[in-house]
Design a binder for these strands. Structure first.
Lengths: 353, 353
DNA sequence: CTGAAAGCGCTTACAG
DNA sequence: CTGAAAGCGCTTACAG
């Protein structure tokens, strides 16, 4: 026994986790056999397998994900890149629901498929941890126009799926998305149905498909009616604070240009607009219809409650993860790249009489 | 050039990412030198370094986090274990804010320190991905009594810090926490100050310190006054639905036992209680004070708005990550294990006159 | 049925 | 200043 090694016959070495060698030594077999036994590969005698399993359990052996990952360069790790992370100011209690719901659902779905889920902000920033690039596949939500993250993942040949399209490269990548235009149309039709003639759109400032597509849709709608489109862009992070500015913008100008409906893409803007309008004596929904493109919690509890789109983020995240898992495993997709359609949650702010 | 290898002099091999060998070959040096040059270790001539850097950039080389992790068994990965993940029903729009705010803040703080952050549900469940155990250090929020996760991490010698104590093993592990008792006292004192004589506590059903410590505190408070404590446990996931049941429980019984204040640990329960009380003609705050231990969004927008504790989850997460990073790097803690104190957000539900 | 050897992509003494 | 060798903890042909 002059062998170099742990030198601890029946015990693991004093520091660090037990390795496959420790198990092999304790069981009096080779590492190869341990590997075979524990993974059900090759042919190993029943008794040997059972003995090895017992000993492995005894000494608390767990294979290292890292070492195993080195073989197939797969860690069993997925990454969710929430592009508008910083724009969101996520950490205020008013934080936009949508992405948090995505993150929660994605994490759980990943676990169900035997993957862990990493939350990544921007893997192209200088100084990102190497681990931020170590996932087997990526999900990128709401990519920006010509998004460098997508470019980089492509260059590195790391598989990914996008939730929402890169507005400048639609169709170039694997994307799941209902399409912002479709979603915006749903709300605009609803507003028109309940009487709106002059709909203003309040978008965010990120150059993603959600903002750009919605703006295009509103512009088209206005053009059909020979109107100048009423569009206002406001940073997402402003939250409810933005309400005052938005209302001022639309109501302090020329009276003929005043909207009779304001469609805010983010729920927090809509909440702010409703409050600001009421403070000015503008009644909602009597004088002004208000709606939001993505529900925030306060839209359900404010007075009046505010009509929103439900984008079904949990379901979308679930699909995205299923796709990412297939990409990670190099399997065929065989999946329709469909996503649940947005639905309307009609509330007081667009219900007259 | 009959050498075995990539065989692509100036190019990387057709599939897979370029490795250090590809760079070495293209630069006409050894892998060792590439490693030295790119990591600033050893002594390499300036020109050689620059040449290697240029070539590495050209072929898009990035070191593999996995291979590097194998040396020091560190991936640059932290894990956040949100224990009550399932109890929370996180994915409804009413989802408890607290943990989502923790997750967001933790992810960002991790990135700032050069780490990625993984969201893990329960790493002790059979069939969890290996990667769920591959983090360099863990943060476990609100562990249960005798929490198996803590036991397992200890056995595996994986460093971790706890947010909130394991109620059965207080002080045995590294924990940061203001202490549920202190937090509950803050709210109970406030309620007493504004006139409550008979305070009921609605706790959750998870056996964590937050629930157990709060119950103890209320019991002590009642005992001091020679009262039977009014305590009711309700699954966290019931959310606002629970309001009706809770109000029934306290108001359909013996009149002398009716509370004049209800302190719900979760914001959603408080929202439900407020609504249910009002439906019964019980006025809030005139007849009944209502407060929540952890703010949910709807408490700020409901009518009446509901008084809550602000636990400052972002700041807490930040501290937890800083500690986890030090643990991961085997550095001295040198940090006070303090955490921001809870503060009161006093709102209409406890403001009389 | 079992094990020695090579290799995954790096890093780190160590020798030249 | 540079590189050959060993090793991190596994798996996977392959030989016995």
């Amino acid at each position: 026994m002059t062998e170099v090694g742990t030198g601890y016959p029946d015990r693991v070495k004093p520091s660090g986790r037990p390795t496959i060698k420790d198990v092999a030594k304790a069981a009096g077999v080779s590492p190869t056999t341990v590997s075979h036994a524990l993974n059900g590969k090759g042919v190993v005698r029943r008794e040997t397998v059972q003995n090895i399993e017992r000993i492995a359990a005894e000494i608390g052996y767990r294979p290292s994900a890292i070492a195993r990952g080195l073989q197939n360069s797969r860690l069993g790790l997925l990454a969710l890149v929430i592009r508008p992370f910083h724009s969101l100011d996520t950490f205020l209690p008013e934080g936009v629901d949508y992405f948090l719901r995505i993150a929660g659902s994605a994490s759980l779905t990943a676990m169900e498929h035997g993957y862990s889920m990493m939350l990544v902000d921007d893997p192209t920033r200088p100084g990102v941890p190497l681990s931020a690039l170590a996932a087997d596949a990526y999900i990128v939500t709401e990519p920006f126009e010509d998004d460098p993250v997508l470019t980089m993942l492509t260059e590195q040949r790391i598989p990914f799926v996008t939730v929402g399209a890169d507005p400048a490269r639609r169709g170039e990548f694997l994307e799941i998305d209902e399409g912002a235009e479709q979603q915006a149309s749903l709300m605009i039709s609803h507003l028109a149905e309940v009487g709106a003639r002059r709909i203003a759109l309040v978008a965010g400032t990120d150059r993603n498909d959600w903002n750009l597509g919605s703006i295009r849709t509103l512009e088209a709608w206005a053009a059909e009616r020979g109107q100048e489109p009423l569009v206002f862009a406001m940073p997402e992070a402003e939250g409810e604070q933005a309400g005052e500015t938005i209302v001022e913008h639309f109501f302090d100008g020329d009276p003929v240009e005043r909207p009779d409906a304001i469609f805010c893409l983010t729920g927090r803007h809509a909440a702010g607009v409703t409050a600001a309008a009421i403070r000015r004596g503008i009644r909602v929904p009597e004088d002004l219809l208000v709606a939001a493109g993505s529900g925030a919690m306060q839209n359900r509890t404010s007075s009046p409650t505010v009509t929103t789109l439900d984008l079904h983020p949990e379901e979308t995240a679930r699909r995205a993860v299923e796709i990412a898992v297939r990409l990670a495993e190099g399997r065929d997709l065989e999946l329709p790249l469909t996503v649940p359609s947005a639905t309307l949650d009609i509330r007081e702010s667009t219900t007259r009489g």
